[in-house]
Design a protein around this nucleic acid. Structure first.
Lengths: 176, 176
DNA sequence: TTGCTCCTCACGTCACGTGAGGTGGC
DNA sequence: TTGCTCCTCACGTCACGTGAGGTGGC
């Protein structure tokens, strides 16, 4: 792994500067992102404004770390950077708290549905892969290299339930 | 939305050909993918081999639909196309059922951990966004455009719990 | 002073999206 | 026969990854 990817070699959880400002490396390490990602978000206008040292090094106030942590979470939840940018700018485009609140609530509602759907899909897949694993455990002791792989469908070692998971059917070449 | 993206205009759930073979459009519609995605997977070697009509139209056997459904699920679960390709080819590179089974089980185990971690992250985010929405409901009736947005931190309308979600803090400009 | 950290180009990648322009088939 | 479905380039996009080559700062 390149040095330019990692935030630092060590793994302290604190920023080291005494003035409370955070370097790009601090931001990356504390949010578990890469240096490139922090710079990319800043270039994209998600983290702004930044101060720079005389030598051109970025310095972020602590509030930008909170923002970065939210951005990181929202990315993991499936929001695009454009959607995140719009959420962060809602208060700038609103004339009252009510307008801003309704806007944010609307955006959150839109995503909550797809997020719970993704949780359900993932849970369905986890259980399918687990039962696939359980069924394949019946094959780990198999040393047959004459009937493998073409005659696995005729083998009676694996207990084949009526609701054979599609993963087993496809991976093992078995009919459902 | 372009005609080239959609599988078809109608939404029947069955293939229409009498010989049981599936067109690209059938594959796309029945797996809820786009035409482009089906062609991309075939060009990438994930769906193969295909027959072609005299005119160049792809025709897939029914077993390829099962494979496509598995690929679609694995993509949604976070597998890369390379990882999926390797899983599908395990039996080709193995000399016995035991070797193939151990290989597949190992690959599944690697992904199950990250999948359950993703489920937990998503559930944490869902609950954070839900409590964010609940708190912001206190602001929807606000018509104040004098103190908004700079003085929201001094406002006492929103019930601010001690464990204020980071999303509220960042989106509403409130200190934690 | 050493070397660890940070910098800017700039091209690459992954998984498709999006037209343009043309043809096939129940 | 009409038009709906499918085809092949080929460039675009999103969110970064990955070097090359150079400099800053406790």
């Amino acid at each position: 792994v390149s040095q330019q990817l990692k935030a630092t070699t060590s793994e302290p959880n604190e920023a080291r500067r005494k003035d409370g400002l955070l370097t790009t490396g601090d931001m990356a390490r504390l949010s578990r992102n890469t240096l490139r990602t922090v710079r990319f978000y800043e270039e994209s206008g998600l983290l702004s404004p930044v101060q720079r040292t005389e030598g051109g090094h970025r310095l972020f106030p602590a509030a930008e770390l909170s923002k970065l942590l939210l951005v990181t979470d929202l990315r993991a939840a499936g929001f695009s950077l454009d959607e995140i940018r719009e959420m962060l700018e809602v208060k700038l485009h609103s004339v009252s708290g009510g307008e801003a609140a309704r806007d944010v609530i609307c955006r959150i509602d839109e995503q909550l549905d797809s997020m719970t759907a993704r949780v359900e899909l993932l849970e369905r897949l986890v259980s399918e892969l687990r039962s696939t694993r359980t069924l394949l455990r019946g094959c780990v002791e198999c040393k047959d290299n004459e009937n493998f792989p073409h005659a696995c469908a005729d083998c009676t070692v694996m207990a084949k339930p009526s609701n054979l998971p599609n993963a087993v059917s496809v991976l093992w070449g078995l009919p459902r």
